[in-house]
Design a binder for these strands. Sequence first.
DNA 1: TTGTACGCGTTATCAG
DNA 2: CTGATAACGCGTACAA
Lengths: 331, 331
Amino acid sequence: MNTTMKDVAKKANVSLSTVSRVINNSNLVSKDTAIKVRKAIKELDYQINESARALRTNISKLIGVIVAGMDNPFLMKVLKSIETEAIKENYNIIYGDSEGELEQELYYINMFQQKKIDGLVVMTAKFSDELIKYIKESNIPTVFASGHLKQSDLPSVTVNNVKAAEDVSEYLFGLDDYFGIIRGPYRDSVASEERMQGVINKYKEKNVPLKKKYISEGDFTFKSGYKAAKILIDKNKDISSIFAFNDQMAVGAIKYCIDNNIKVPDQISIIGFDDIEAAKYANPSLSTVYQSGTKLGIEIMNILLKEINGTQFTKKNVFIPHDLIIRESSK
Amino acid sequence: MNTTMKDVAKKANVSLSTVSRVINNSNLVSKDTAIKVRKAIKELDYQINESARALRTNISKLIGVIVAGMDNPFLMKVLKSIETEAIKENYNIIYGDSEGELEQELYYINMFQQKKIDGLVVMTAKFSDELIKYIKESNIPTVFASGHLKQSDLPSVTVNNVKAAEDVSEYLFGLDDYFGIIRGPYRDSVASEERMQGVINKYKEKNVPLKKKYISEGDFTFKSGYKAAKILIDKNKDISSIFAFNDQMAVGAIKYCIDNNIKVPDQISIIGFDDIEAAKYANPSLSTVYQSGTKLGIEIMNILLKEINGTQFTKKNVFIPHDLIIRESSK
DNA sequence: TTGTACGCGTTATCAG
DNA sequence: CTGATAACGCGTACAA
């Protein structure tokens, strides 16, 4: 059977409580006994039983992460970064891909609750009222990381989607009188909604009517970008630039152009979002909005850990930096 | 405070054990009481405390997964698939990225042990003796999924790397007298080792000396593929085809060619491995070896769950299908 | 079919 | 500084 604290106590000739103290680095224990106990621990190869500890302390050292779409390389970078940060504080990550379905999200959260997660990260597409209500009532420390929550006081950290989209728009307005947009799913993605807002702002600022036919909808996949590009180009014969709301759709759009003998960027400039690794190696290499998944993960965990530990933190809504990177796919 | 079985018992006017029986779907309970109890559970919104249950049963409903390099989209597909399968049986996944470092792997396994994982999936680069010994001694049901273990009787599931590489080689020998290879890290990746074996087999079969200068080393990243292609092309002026051991390196290689005005596939054919989503949308689209990350995940969990449940399973070493897909990047 | 009582391995409280 | 002892919430013999 597994060796327990009891065995260690016996071996070291001390009481259970002393062993516990040593393990938890209490200073209420003399150096000598501590050494003695540590020796016993090593000799018996004793391992903490986290289940028992969790039962007793109500601390599971588990953090739940809900994402919408693990096929997104950018999200994976975030997921990796979160794990890296978590492990430093001895937390493990459990995750679930909701595919953007509320039902799935609720299901996962419920499951996570049973596992007594200490914290929750929500990187889902949509912040529905029901989801937010459920999370609030659960009382689990939570960080949102797809967009900002205006209607709520829950902490969030993301890139400044509005500003970033404005930057892209500004750039594209320098190329032509209008540009096409490949956005994310309608009414279903905060990130997409926010980026759209940035586009709308710039169109207004430039006094250009944002016609419906300038906008096409994708679902953040290569394929949808390919299709959306076709629609956009068919509808707007003179279109000369496209802003896709993520890199995959942008690459899909490029592919459509190439398949149809449309030169990128000579005839059409294409700009993406995220700057996934593949963007640099696309052909032509992809102009895009850089944001650091690693930084995002670090910031998420930073806030979450403060919440968990009850530490005060000033900024509830944090932006990570972004940067418009012009490569070969745009003039 | 959280509601416990005790509260439910009180509310339903039954004993603790009865509640427990209802929760665990024991048939040692009358229909009427079961209904009564379920009603109380609902009314109180009772949630199982998995920590307590885990302590009692020694079953955590947690499965640990160790991967080497989460930046690999193919691995992510597997990770997602594993989770999807796991959740069906009420397991959650905890994961760690070892970056191929033994020390990290041991660290994670140790941590996972403390969390009392019910099973372990190892998708690391190298199966070192130390790692295998450690895992064996841990007695945790384990499945390996990067390559096959000749020296051990632990279950594994992967694509048939040797055969797949032979297929690619056969194809490339139909194009020219020899081809270049961008392999994975030397002595450090089973998958790479196995694919290399396939190449070696074919070179032998064709009676072509496999010169050292035909082989260049990468580390499965875009960048390393780019660099490796340069080396290969510099060393072999007349080279006309390259087999890269994964898609990222292949795309990196394509990029190098394009940057240097080498036409793909007219001057050089390039073939990758994995068939990640981006392969289809690369430009030119990438010829590659298709394997299903989803299927891999399903098979991994299939075997692992059998191990966990003590069910007999016949095949210890399972191959998932592969398929050579010729797209635009090769003649 | 139901209830009682014990123990899983820890941590926390209290007394010494 | 150290040691007894009582929880934490659940599952399971055993008894009824």
